[in-house]
Design a protein around this nucleic acid. Structure first.
Lengths: 213, 213
DNA sequence: AATCATTCCAAACAATTGTTTTAAACATAC
DNA sequence: GTATGTTTAAAACAATTGTTTGGAATGATT
């Protein structure tokens, strides 16, 4: 199968380069030369650069959404009486994220960095695509989140979830650079797992912070 | 004075367009036609597009840094015995941010959006420029931060401050898109000021979260 | 072996980018 | 009023962008 090999080589190269440099700053020529394929291959297999960007996202977001929906459904069937608590809910999300790289070859940090880019780079087509493609999984997650935080108004809950997402995406995307800094300045080694351990209490405390009036 | 007028018109137009679309996605022709000046004026007055980007930042970041240093100094003189607490510290930062638009014509949301872009868009030249230009204000802030959180180890403090910065930068860089979503789904209008009000308790709680072992 | 659709490749395409150039317009000083 | 230096204007510049093209290679099916 020469076809799928070329397609995957393009996706692999694009994924890394997009994560490193952003979308506009990554040219098709960079991608194809890193993937060792012909320049025209991108337009032949994907149709356009925008379609390639969407394909990069759906390759890791589709398994993640599928995992998440399945896991949420599974756990909620055992919680028919009481809602799922926050810690369990966050645990489900993180475990589903960690599951994806095991299936494909995408690293967690690349995963999160791309997720962050999708949010910050105002690529209109991407945002629309993601919204209509994964709205079901997102709404499902939000439903359980709503039940787990009844003390919050819907507006406060929305924003705090965004804060959480932002913190995670940003930290994960810059984790290598920050680890280097801290290793130089304090002679302490920080693995991704250790950073996540530090991150979770931060997020949980923020999410449950007293409301300001 | 035709000169300074042209310069300011370019800065005004560039500021808005950069905040709306990002740096790479904004061409000099968009800027100059919005500013009603000739295309060559940018290279004449600023030298290059990168220099223009830096000029846009320094126009509002310099007053901010000045405000912040002055305010930190002023408050710390009244706290000779005990350190400044976190809430006050974060309050100083946000109030200094809000002060700048009153001095210039830049809106708070544009200000914050640019700040977020500076952090998330990996423009190498920008990051270096900002670091060496405003390291004094940053170090000053860090010193008070250290005194305000004596219960944290330096490693924990380092990470939590990164979490904070990440949350802020991320939220600010995607604030308009998120405001649109929440306005559509919940019929609630969210100004930047309101989002900041929601952000501060989240950050403060995260910073002071109990340590995990 | 011949036919077929699929995939690949080198080249060219048109459009857009940041930057530079040339001359004209302008203001200021003598 | 002439001279001098500064700012604007329009055009052209070279480089890079995403995309398209026509034909060559490929590989499976008959």
């Amino acid at each position: 199968m020469a076809q799928s090999d070329t397609v995957n080589r393009i996706l692999d190269a694009a994924e890394v380069l997009f994560a490193e440099r952003g979308f506009s700053e990554t040219s098709l020529r960079m991608i194809t030369s890193k993937a060792n394929v012909n320049l025209a291959a991108v337009n032949y297999h994907f149709g356009s650069k925008n379609a390639l960007i969407q394909a990069v996202f759906s390759r890791f977001l589709s398994p993640f959404a599928k995992n998440l929906e399945a896991e949420l459904k599974r756990v909620s069937e055992r919680h028919t009486d009481k809602p799922i608590d926050i810690e369990t809910l966050l645990g489900i999300v993180t475990s589903c994220i960690v599951m994806v790289p095991a299936q494909s070859k995408t690293g967690v940090s690349v995963f999160m960095r791309l997720l962050g880019l999708a949010y910050t780079q105002s690529q209109g087509h991407l945002r629309k695509y993601l919204e209509q493609e994964y709205s079901r999984a997102f709404k499902m997650f939000m439903k359980h989140m709503r039940e787990a935080t009844p003390q919050l108004t819907s507006v406060d809950r929305f924003w705090r979830i965004q804060f959480m997402l932002g913190t995670t995406a940003f930290t994960m995307s810059s984790i290598e650079a920050l680890s280097d800094i801290i290793e130089n300045e304090m002679q302490v080694h920080s693995s991704t797992e250790e950073v996540v351990k530090r991150l979770v209490p931060f997020l949980a405390a923020g999410l449950q912070a007293p409301l300001q009036n």
